[in-house]
């Protein structure tokens, strides 16, 4: 269970949100909504432990994530605005490196994962020749190979076409149905079925 207690985050002198508390149970998707600049990305980065909150804490299974450190990160897959893709490596090399750093299985089937995101033909192409949407798909392919319970996704649907948007929604539904946790921001409509809770940051 991911639990947020009295979380306050600020950028510079400006408080983005104050005393925010919520929890995400296994099998639940939390849809974080809010206008541009309302602190969605900051919240997600704080949940990952990339940014430090001004006050309050984030707990995983009841323990603050600052204490869990590596144990928490092994449960977590974060896809942020930046895709984490190096243009001079091929799509397959990028995915292999991404899963390796994420601590996933060493004998992961990279080819199968690339096929599922429709990048088989581009597997050997340097990633700098991929389109924005293809790069996004390559980043999201990490979710397929890493078997982590907690997904923290910052605008995963940007630049995706209708077809892969639908596939992504299916994947989210399946992950939640299997007892996974998802925290997501998106300006596109989510078509996920299952237990969904919403939180608005600018209200």
């Amino acid at each position: 269970m991911l639990q947020v207690v009295d979380l306050t985050c600020s950028r510079g002198d400006r408080a983005l949100f104050e005393k925010l508390s919520f929890s995400v149970q296994p099998g639940e998707l939390l849809y974080v909504q809010g206008a541009n600049g309302s602190g969605k990305t900051t919240l997600l980065r704080t949940l990952c432990g990339l940014s430090q909150p001004a006050d309050g804490e984030v707990r995983w299974q009841g323990t603050p994530i600052s204490q869990l450190a590596d144990d928490y990160r092994s449960q977590l897959c974060y896809i942020g605005h930046a895709n984490g893709i190096q243009g001079d490596l091929s799509a397959a090399e990028n995915l292999r490196f991404g899963t390796c750093v994420g601590g996933a299985d060493s004998h992961v089937d990279i080819a199968a994962a690339l096929e599922r995101v429709g990048l088989t033909k581009a597997a050997r192409l340097p990633a700098k020749f991929l389109s924005q949407g293809q790069k996004r798909r390559l980043a999201l392919a990490r979710l397929l190979v890493a078997t982590k319970p907690l997904w923290i996704l910052d605008e995963p649907l940007t630049a995706l076409d209708v077809h892969f948007g639908a596939i992504m929604n299916e994947r989210l539904t399946a992950h939640v149905a299997a007892g996974g946790l998802v925290v997501i921001t998106s300006h596109q409509e989510l078509a996920v079925t299952g237990q969904i809770s919403k939180i608005r940051l600018d209200s």
Partner: peptide, 18 residues
Amino acid sequence: AGDHADGTLEQMTLSPHP
């Protein structure tokens, strides 16, 4: 610099390894 710009550094920081 390159890893910082493309987000690889974020992924490294979030690795389950120290």
